[in-house]
């Protein structure tokens, strides 16, 4: 249970950054932290005590393995996160070209 609470704390650190920081790059980093915490939490749910990796070995000795389904889903999630990060960075580069700043309190004229 301690592990779950620590993982949730990591998620809350991400929310804290996204809410209070005024720098666009810091906000992107906070979203990344939240993504790490969610991925890690789902893999924590999948772990089985004393089990080994989900790969079959010869003679079928490896009958005790961790839950492979969450791992497959999170593999998808990690790759999509990379696409999201690239798109957010592209947006922030564009905003910097127009406003010459990363400070979100100074980016006010959201037209054209």
């Amino acid at each position: 249970m301690t592990v779950y609470i620590l993982c949730f704390t990591l998620f809350l650190v991400g929310i804290y950054g996204a809410l209070t920081k005024r720098d666009l790059i810091k906000i992107i980093l906070s979203l990344g932290i939240m993504g790490y915490a969610v991925n890690l939490m789902i893999i924590l749910f999948a772990y089985k005590e004393g089990a080994s990796f989900a790969i079959l070995v010869r003679d079928g000795i490896n009958s005790n393995m961790v839950d492979p389904l969450p791992q497959a889903l999170i593999l998808t999630s990690i790759v999509i996160e990379l696409g999201i990060t690239a798109m957010l960075v592209a947006l922030s580069i564009r905003l910097f070209q127009k406003y010459k700043t990363f400070d979100i309190t100074k980016i006010r004229r959201l037209s054209g």
Partner: peptide, 17 residues
């Protein structure tokens, strides 16, 4: 952490990410 949780594929993908 993925390595400790026996998720080998994920550890590699996370490293590349």
């Amino acid at each position: 952490a993925f390595l400790f949780l026996q998720a080998l594929d994920l550890a590699i993908v996370q490293f590349l990410f």
